[in-house]
Amino acid sequence: MEKRTVFAGYSLPALLLVPQLLITIVFFYMPAGQAMWQSFQIEDAFGTTTIFVGFENYRELFKKPEYYKAMGTTLVFSTAVAFLSLSISLLLATMANKQIRGATAYKTLLIWPYAVAPAIAGVLWLFMFQPSMGMVSKALKSAGVDWNPTLNGNHAMLLVIMAATWKQISYNFLFFLAGLQSIPHSLIEASAIDGARPMRRFWTIIFPLLSPTTFFLIVVNITYVFFDTFGIIDAMTGGGPAKATETLVYKVFADGRLGGDLGGSAAQSVILMIMVIAMTAFQFKYIERKVSY
């Protein structure tokens, strides 16, 4: 898609592009390039000398059980959050899409958590589940559950999953609702005439027609869990206990800062970049997102 008519000249468009290109190159490409370069180097303990080591950092990385553990954690975390938040929001959107009173009010009441910072969402849930005086923890204790996310890795994982899911419901709800509203009503009527009961109608007509939205949301949710949940994890568990909630992104941060292993951290960054690029490419290829260039 191109404009039929344009303005002539090179200097004005160049001038208009300079700010964005400059910032992009300085703060995106240079760091990305540097991460790549660093991933092939080892720095000594004092940061005085660096040696080029080729793929050594990557080899080291894939030898470490922690890395696989972080991968597993990320997988569990993202699958759980994507599945939970998608199911809950699909249920809510389906209900809100029925022609009921107050549908717009429900919508308003459900979408605002999008605006809550992940770290703040983490703090809210942390408070409710704080082992000694949290409201929910007390209830759990009286029910006989020895709840302690600061010691029990599974509890900690559960907690970050809940917070991350809570925050993501609004986003998925909005897209599901839009998707549902774009399904022509005549199709629903046709299937009703064809004798499909409401449940059957949902699974045979609505759900398949919604699949582009669902598919899009799955990819978006995975990206969300990968990157945006950093704040949740850092505020709630700091990756602990015993690295039980350390995701791949969190590990890049932790290894580079606390461990000072810049080469290893850079290698992880590069792997993550490749993963993001793969996911974005996937998204473009299969979700009919048309950037017509």
Partner: peptide, 21 residues
């Protein structure tokens, strides 16, 4: 494209080099 590709470079994956700059 230079601008477009930045979609794929969230700050989290290039955090230390960006910090350094």
């Amino acid at each position: 494209w230079i601008i477009f590709v930045t979609l794929m470079l969230p700050v989290e994956v290039r955090i230390y080099p960006t910090y350094k700059i």
